[in-house]
Amino acid sequence: MTADAASSLDAFFAAAIAMEEEAAQRYEEFADAMDTHNNAEVASMFRRLAAVEARHADELMAQRGWTALPLMPRIEFEGCEGPETTPADAVHYLMTPWHALSLALANEERAVRFFEQLARSTTDETVRRAALEFKAEEEEHVVLVREWMGRVEKPPVDWAVDPDPPRYTD
């Protein structure tokens, strides 16, 4: 990632909040798409995940005493989007809650790696400490999502089979 986020504690928080907000927006977008495609169960799962990420963003804003994000140069993440953002093409209209959670797990694991790398690369001691704290928190999320996955049904092997598919070109 980004030299910017490592440069000061404000920049670090701005990056972390932007990450959470972007992740929440993507989950919301997925929830809407699943609602549209009558997959209510997964829609509500994505909605819950969005709420969790949005709450994290709000908590970080409060922690910093901010009401709006300070103006910062654009944050460059490795890859196209923030580490907690699910790639837009990772969903399927027949996916199950277990799939949604496995995407969330991958996001949390990427976030752990992200903060780990940030802690290693920064020369600012306050940023390093904050990055390690955030890494530990993301590790807790990994555990929580794994537990959550244990409580939902695993998808059957033929989960993507649609007896009336939209696609007939193959």
Binding site: A33, T36, H37, A88, D89, H92, Y93, P166
Partner: peptide, 16 residues
């Protein structure tokens, strides 16, 4: 209005 595109369609991100 919520898009009716297939979940995963690239057009979601173009709208964004």
């Amino acid at each position: 209005y919520k898009p009716i595109w297939c979940p995963g369609c690239g057009d979601f991100s173009v709208l964004s």
